[in-house]
Computed example of a mutant assay.
Amino acid sequence: MTFPVGLALAEAVPRLPRGRGWWYEPKFDGHRMLMHRTEETLICQSRSGRTVTSTWMDLALAGQAVLRPGTVLDGEAVVWVDGRLDFSAVQARGASSARRARELAAEHPANYIAWDCLMADGIDLRARPYLERRAALLEVLDGVPPPIQPTPATDDIEVALAWYEHLPAQGIEGVVAKHSTGTYRAGRIWKKIRHAETVDAQVVGYVGPAGRPKQVAVLLPDGRRVLSQTLTAPLAAEVARAIAAAGPGRRARTDGGESYTTTTGLTVEVAAGTTRHAVVTVTRTR
């Protein structure tokens, strides 16, 4: 296995896939992290491939004590505060120096929620199906106490929907779906749904032809400028009329760096992710 490891990701979908072979896991709100137990130590890798062991030294020490050499786990570093996942505490840890990270760990220790086993006893499992990797994960973590623990998983869609409905109060931001036969590879190979709420947003621009825009750039209530998902044909027609009334625009960029043409004079209702991730779907114009 070559390090840093390319991580599997999930694409947002409007509803969970159903049918034979689908498994579901709660989506925890934290920092994506790989744990690599070598012969001598344990290394923590971030989603971007950086080594972040010093930031999560409490988890690294815990993993070094209980994981067998030749183990690689994929999961999420999370912080519980007053019985709820606290992403601000995770962000503070992620942005801190090694010394400050130790202070924060003393105040609010981290947990590691593992959902995949990429290597066990030095054997690369990424080409194995999800259910085999899941069995390996449970075997590796059998008897291992917190702060390292496996994520729950179920093949019952009703249980998954109950998680989605009842666990937001604890900071669970959604549900991830994985197929039982799926291998592990870099890229968006899983499906996920996240909790959303409807809010009004100002349209600040569009992508595509003025007469048939594909997406709109919106200013969300929290100040983020983001692109929407692809517009439906009726919505695109309504937006096009507003663009024509506003006149020519200029080029600008969203907070994420995507280019768009500016416009004014239109407010839309959007379903926007309630977490830090902005997945915006326009539901109607105002």
Rank of each mutant, 00 (worst) to 15 (best):
residue 249 G to V: 11
residue 119 M to S: 04
residue 1 M to W: 08
residue 197 E to T: 14
residue 256 G to P: 05
residue 140 V to T: 10
residue 264 T to V: 09
residue 185 R to H: 11
residue 252 A to L: 06
residue 80 W to M: 01
residue 120 A to V: 04
residue 175 V to R: 10
residue 85 L to Q: 15
residue 73 L to R: 00
residue 264 T to D: 06
residue 207 V to M: 09
residue 103 E to S: 13
residue 66 V to I: 14
residue 156 D to T: 04
residue 56 W to I: 01
residue 54 S to R: 14
residue 127 A to P: 00
residue 28 F to A: 08
residue 194 R to I: 14
residue 2 T to A: 10
residue 227 L to Q: 05
residue 259 S to N: 05
residue 116 D to E: 06
residue 30 G to L: 03
residue 178 K to G: 01
residue 29 D to K: 02
residue 209 P to R: 15
residue 51 T to W: 01
residue 263 T to L: 09
residue 174 G to F: 13
residue 254 T to P: 09
residue 167 L to T: 14
residue 239 V to A: 10
residue 67 L to M: 08
residue 102 R to T: 13
residue 72 V to D: 02
residue 127 A to M: 07
residue 30 G to D: 10
residue 167 L to R: 09
residue 255 D to W: 05
residue 136 A to I: 04
residue 154 T to G: 02
residue 1 M to V: 12
residue 92 A to W: 13
residue 90 V to A: 02
residue 205 G to M: 09
residue 239 V to W: 04
residue 50 R to D: 15
residue 43 I to L: 12
residue 200 D to W: 08
residue 124 D to N: 07
residue 174 G to N: 06
residue 93 R to K: 12
residue 46 S to F: 01
residue 164 Y to S: 05
residue 226 V to S: 08
residue 93 R to L: 11
residue 43 I to P: 05
residue 166 H to M: 07
residue 58 D to V: 10
residue 157 I to N: 03
residue 20 R to S: 13
residue 136 A to W: 03
residue 172 I to S: 07
residue 272 A to M: 04
residue 254 T to I: 02
residue 196 A to I: 09
residue 103 E to N: 11
residue 264 T to P: 00
